[in-house]
Design a protein around this nucleic acid. Sequence first.
DNA 1: TGCTATCTTATGGGATATCATGGAATTTTA
DNA 2: TAAAATTCCATGATATCCCATAAGATAGCA
Lengths: 165, 165
Amino acid sequence: MIRRFRGESLHKVDAKGRVSVPAAFRRVLEEGDPDFSRGSSPNFVIVYGGVRGDCLEGYTISSISKVDKLISKLPRFSKDREMLERFINTQSTYMQLDETGRIVLSQRLKEKIGIGDEAIFAGMGEKFQIWEPKNYQNELNALDSSFKNLSEDENPFLKLDQLQD
Amino acid sequence: MIRRFRGESLHKVDAKGRVSVPAAFRRVLEEGDPDFSRGSSPNFVIVYGGVRGDCLEGYTISSISKVDKLISKLPRFSKDREMLERFINTQSTYMQLDETGRIVLSQRLKEKIGIGDEAIFAGMGEKFQIWEPKNYQNELNALDSSFKNLSEDENPFLKLDQLQD
DNA sequence: TGCTATCTTATGGGATATCATGGAATTTTA
DNA sequence: TAAAATTCCATGATATCCCATAAGATAGCA
């Protein structure tokens, strides 16, 4: 089985910015780090820029490498490539879990998404997100109401089965 | 894992032109210098000519070699090759980190990109860039707004998935 | 099925190391 | 020999490591 990021949970952020990554997510990060071995701590990547400015996104090493590899296929110095590098490489950072399964959110990262002393972790399949709790709730509400306004043939659930394999 | 240049940070440039290279970038420079050994300081290359003129670009020894190799594939004496040689070879210089992880930006280099007493380092995967902070912010804003103006099928993120693996 | 022992998780506090930066001393160079 | 560049030392801030604990979760067993 390829484990994916699933579920949501609330965690305390202490004065040093330390916050526990949900244990279930840790398993995914371990599997997604080719250099991980029992006893060590997995590396991964947090992307904070790009399209969404309102949350952080965590990627396993292997899933971010996939993206990196695709980007490297674009011609060096091309506009597209520079844009993607900027959004995905520049506005991101390597992270490593500590012994106890925590990471440190720097002052800068906390400010980026307006986090105080609590954070929500939300599983999104190949990635996970970190939100300030209130903003997260707003996001959910917005999603809910925009879903309700969709017509039948705009419903993404129904579109799913029309995709080819 | 092959470490890449990731993230961005702001550093002071002192009266002598000294500036700290972000610790995370130092690790990448070390890995990318075949002659590096523990205890010494890695060499790398700064390109100041070329594509844009508004920032400096830093390459590891091994990534600049890749570029050099690509250039050598072009026909000798061709206009293209001459131009690239000029930008990448002529307008570049070897650099070495000092003991404390700093480099010295000469007057000339500072003038090239209009740097005063602060500099932004921005990771771009196989290379990194050094910017004057205001210019960097402008670059980001320009990128942001040009991204917003793209149509769905010009979006480089979406184009990524269409590339072959 | 209940009870206890063990492990895992989430969290906190203090000690230690690394990083970014400044200034002085020394060498090089023109 | 004065200016410029390089080396050496110093320090506060930040990040990292190490240890501690309490609450759940899990396992084993009677």
